[in-house]
């Protein structure tokens, strides 16, 4: 279970302090598929980076299965990202000179899986997301956007994370491919019992998730 309490984040800028998140409170149950919607600059990405331990909040707490990740040391936060969190990005963010298979194996390496088991696990994950064996050996530039996002999802799920954080997962895809990717995420959240929190501006997609949080000016308004 994910519990966010009074989460605030301020940045210093030339024009003074900017509050990106202002006392955000939210709770997401394990295995739930939730979405966060909001306009550009509403604090969606900032919230996602706090939840993924990519950045440190100014105040408040983020509890994942009872552990406040905001108070973890840098080393433990890295371990948290490797084992408890899976990221899916709008621009896929695959390593361009590694094959699809190697990209997934990289996440498994960081998750601490023994080298001998990585390949079989990565192949299984890529097969699960619908990548053919020959596609698995291609490097990202030789895969379509939809295929790259599938690889990204396989990488996010590699270490059986507690939460998958998706930042505009369909934002860079045509609507048909976007729907397929959404269905894939939805299916996986059910089969793997993984909590998924997706930032989106696509109301159709948001409407299909279990819960939707609406952010405005750094606050949850619905």
């Amino acid at each position: 279970m994910l519990v966010v309490k009074n989460l605030s984040k301020s940045f210093s800028s030339a024009s003074g302090d900017v509050t990106a998140l202002n006392k955000v409170n939210l709770t997401v149950q394990t295995g739930e598929f939730a979405s966060i919607i909001g306009k550009s600059g509403s604090g969606k990405s900032t919230l996602l980076s706090m939840l993924g331990a990519l950045d440190i909040p100014t105040s408040g707490s983020i509890e994942v299965d009872g552990v406040d990740i905001a108070k973890l040391s840098a080393g433990k936060q890295t371990a948290y990202r490797a084992k408890k969190i899976g990221f899916v990005f709008q621009h896929y963010n695959l390593i361009p000179n590694l094959t699809a298979l190697e990209n997934v194996m990289l996440a498994l390496e960081f998750g601490g899986m023994p080298a001998k088991k990585r390949k079989a696990r990565a192949e299984q994950l890529l097969t699960d997301v619908g990548l053919e064996p020959d596609e698995q050996l291609r490097k990202p530039p030789r895969l379509s956007g939809g295929q790259q996002q599938r690889v990204s999802i396989a990488r996010a799920l590699a270490n059986h994370p507690a939460i998958v954080l998706a930042d505009e997962p369909t934002g860079n895809l045509d609507s048909e491919t976007g729907k397929k990717i959404f269905d894939l995420l939805h299916h996986l959240s059910r089969s793997e019992k993984t909590t998924i929190l997706a930032v989106t501006h696509d109301m159709d997609i948001a409407g299909k998730t279990d819960r939707t949080f609406k952010l405005k000016d750094g606050k949850i308004i619905a």
Binding site: L54, T78, R81, K83, F87, N93, I95, L106, F110, N159
Partner: peptide, 16 residues
């Protein structure tokens, strides 16, 4: 820079 960010985001340590 972004690639380094990605590696760190998916759990790569500074050492690695």
């Amino acid at each position: 820079r972004r690639e380094i960010g990605v590696i760190k985001a998916i759990g790569g340590t500074n050492r690695k």
